[in-house]
């Protein structure tokens, strides 16, 4: 009887005691299922659904309906495909962000998708920012919710089906030898070392500019500084700010904001909740819409 109780405790107990521990344990889980992402953004609701699987520490997500759009993410590697066309990016870094600015709330045991799970919230400066639902058996993150400062849910990513059978997962590979992007020694001087608790981790070269990566161990921000124009596609909302405009595009799971400082073009790609995003943007050079002569100058000299 005692052995059964101990065994039961071992099975249902959370595998780690903080957000870093939970997330680290979740990388070892192997599962497949359908994931739904629903985000309530300042520009309206954004949602999407796709199949997802995690095998050998690699996540593969694919559009079950079209079947020709696949994403594969592994540490340092990201690959995307559209039809037969595959793009891959490999990066190197000697640093790893830790979510040390978060404190753990009281874990609670409940069930999700008919499975025993542990639900736990993580707080930054007294505000719950992340709530994870973790499968007790595998450690997999079955659901993650992020919150705005006022407690409203921002993004809800949840599996709506779950299986430990990972057969039939599409593969994605490229025959090209990938050249890993290595960090530059310095970041653009206009960028802060830290903003909203996110630390500047690495800066990489991109087309005619740089990409600086910020993280607090959970949320991430990529800041691009480039001389090239940034095209956000359709569904762009312009917001007046400074002496110009932000142009932003919220999608399910991430947001992109771009603007001009008058001399450079900046773009931010992030999963930050809107209030933290606003605070982060305030730490960067403000928008300045380029005047006529500046635009003419740019046409000649970039």
């Amino acid at each position: 009887m005692l052995a059964a109780v101990v065994a039961a405790i071992l099975v249902v107990a959370p595998v780690a005691a903080d957000i870093g521990g939970y997330l680290e344990a979740s990388t070892e889980a192997e599962f497949a299922g359908e994931q739904v992402v629903l985000c309530e953004t300042p520009d309206g609701s954004r949602s999407t659904a796709f199949e997802i699987a995690q095998v050998d520490g690699t996540v593969v997500a694919w559009d079950a309906q079209s079947g020709d759009s696949i994403v594969r993410v592994a540490p340092g590697l990201s690959m995307t495909s559209a039809g037969d066309h595959v793009e891959a990016t490999l990066v190197e870094s000697s640093r790893s962000a830790q979510p040390s600015s978060y404190t753990e709330g009281e874990p609670s045991s409940t069930s999700y998708l008919g499975r025993p799970v542990t639900e736990v919230g993580f707080y930054r400066e007294g505000i719950e920012r992340v709530r994870l639902t973790l499968d007790d058996e595998t450690g997999a993150v079955l659901r993650s919710r992020t919150f705005d400062a006022d407690g409203d849910a921002y993004c809800d990513r949840r599996l709506v089906s779950f299986s430990t059978d990972v057969t039939g997962v599409p593969s994605l590979s490229t025959e090209d030898d990938l050249q890993a992007a290595t960090p530059l020694e310095t970041a653009p001087a206009m960028l802060p070392e830290e903003a909203v608790g996110l630390e500047l981790m690495d800066t990489y070269p991109v087309e005619d500019g740089t990409l600086s990566y910020y993280s607090d161990g959970f949320f991430s921000v990529g800041v691009v500084v480039t001389s090239r124009p940034v095209d956000l596609g359709s569904d762009v909302v312009e917001v007046p700010a400074g002496r110009g405009h932000y142009r932003r595009n919220f999608t399910a799971g991430s947001a992109v904001v771009s603007w001009s400082t008058g001399t450079d073009n900046l773009a931010v790609i992030t999963d930050l909740p809107p209030d933290m995003l606003e605070e982060f943007l305030a730490s960067l050079p403000e928008p300045v819409d380029a005047g006529f002569f500046r635009r003419i100058w740019s046409r000649f000299f970039g």
């Binding site: 870093g20 997330l23 680290e24 979740s26 990388t27 994931q35 992402v37 999407t48 796709f50 997802i52 995690q54 520490g57 690699t58 996540v59 997500a61 694919w62 559009d63 079209s66 759009s69 696949i70 994403v71 993410v73 592994a74 540490p75 340092g76 590697l77 990201s78 690959m79 995307t80 559209a82 793009e87 891959a88 990016t89 490999l90 990066v91 870094s93 790893s96 962000a97 979510p99 997999a140 993150v141 993650s144 990513r157 992007a181 690495d202 990489y204 991109v206 990409l211 990566y213 993280s215 161990g217 959970f218 991430s220 990529g222 999608t251 399910a252 799971g253 991430s254 790609i269 999963d271």
Partner: peptide, 23 residues
């Protein structure tokens, strides 16, 4: 893609971040 690859180096949050096919 580069942000996603770099974020995946931080922790086991791969399935939670920047993984949306067709986006």
């Amino acid at each position: 893609r580069q942000v996603g690859a770099r974020a995946a180096l931080d922790l086991g949050a791969n399935s939670l971040k920047f993984v949306v096919p067709g986006a």
